[in-house]
Simulated assay, not measured.
Amino acid sequence: MEFVSNKTLRGDCSFIYEEENYTHPTLIFEIAWSQSTDKLEERAIELIEEGNGQIRTVVGLDFFETWNIWDTIRDQIGNGLDPIRGPFTAFVWRVVVDRNGQQVFNANGRPRVQKSNYLFCDCDGTANLTERLQLSLRDFLPALVIKEERWGKVKDLDNVKLELDALTMLTYFDDALKKQKREDENSKPKIERIEQEIRKRRGERAAKRKADLEKEHKQWDISSFNEIGGHRLRKVQGRA
């Protein structure tokens, strides 16, 4: 996405409002793996501000704390009957609009944003099976559309919910962890092959240098010459 400020940003997943004048997605998913939770929030606010009313909602899936302990739990993933998980929190940042559908700004001129938290797994990886992430169809509409006359036609969309329950989200989470483990395992042999190839080439170069040195030493062995400096050597009994 290119913005008026000349910034270029990319979302991990997005939904666009298909109308001629809208060039940016209205709802964006951002996923934090090695990216910190603070960086995830900074990116969400940045997207909303740069979107200038077109970007309505940002959903953040935060796996950063799981990434921090990944080396500890990776070998256990997919090996037992009980799923092994790390912490998992989802966040939703929404542009605030007033009763007339107009976007609300703070005193400093920045968009007012409402933040919601959804804890699906705590710090011990224990699942919260009662958690539910809910989005309304209005989350998919730009604030600029909401504040226009068509607001009366779309305001009832707020009552239409897209619900992502804990079981659904944790199933996606488990599948993602297994996929990440496979990617790590597939990349490890590749790294090892590269390292073996480097060691092999080094060994070949060392062997070649050794052979060249031995050849050079043999070449300059005085017993192998008939002439040195234009003088022919000849054997004398008992000495050369």
Rank of each mutant, 00 (worst) to 15 (best):
L213N: 11
G51P: 03
L135W: 05
A240M: 13
Q54Y: 04
D38H: 09
F15L: 11
F91N: 00
L157K: 03
N186Y: 10
N186K: 13
D124S: 12
N159F: 07
Q76W: 09
L9H: 03
I191V: 15
E50V: 04
T126K: 15
I55M: 01
R209D: 12
R99S: 13
L137W: 07
L81Y: 10
V92L: 02
G229I: 04
I28T: 04
N106G: 08
D212A: 15
C121W: 04
R10K: 15
H24Y: 09
K190L: 15
Q103L: 12
N52V: 05
I55K: 02
I73G: 00
D221V: 02
P25A: 01
T130D: 13
I198P: 02
L164V: 13
L9M: 09
N226W: 07
W67V: 01
S187Y: 14
T168W: 11
R182M: 12
S14V: 10
G125M: 03
L81W: 06
V97S: 11
L157R: 02
L135A: 04
A127W: 12
I31G: 03
S14P: 04
R239F: 09
D12N: 12
F173D: 06
E195L: 15
R74C: 08
L164M: 14
S136K: 07
R232V: 08
R232A: 03
R234K: 12
N108P: 02
A176P: 00
E19P: 01
F3T: 01
C13Y: 12
G60A: 13
S223G: 15
V95I: 12
S36P: 04
M169E: 01
W67T: 02
A207R: 14
E216I: 10
I48G: 00
F225T: 03
D38I: 08
T37F: 03
V104T: 07
Q102R: 14
E131I: 04
E195P: 05
I228G: 00
S136G: 12
L233G: 04
G238F: 00
V96H: 04
E216N: 12
R94H: 11
N186E: 12
K179C: 11
C121E: 03
K115E: 11
E192T: 08
N6I: 05
D75P: 05
I77E: 04
T168K: 13
K181H: 01
Q114G: 09
I191Y: 14
D139C: 13
L170Y: 07
E19N: 08
R85L: 03
L119K: 13
L133G: 00
E131H: 03
E185R: 10
A32D: 11
V113H: 00
W33P: 05
V97K: 14
L61T: 05
Q54F: 02
G229R: 13
R202E: 15
D175H: 10
E214A: 12
L27K: 02
Q134G: 09
D221S: 05
R205T: 10
T130Q: 14
V104A: 05
R110Y: 06
R112I: 01
Q54M: 07
L47D: 00
V104G: 02
V160L: 08
T126V: 14
L61A: 13
L144D: 05
Y17H: 08
V113K: 01
S116M: 13
E148W: 07
A44N: 00
I222M: 09
V96W: 03
V104W: 06
S187F: 14
D165S: 11
Q219W: 08
R182W: 09
R43M: 12
A207C: 02
P25G: 00
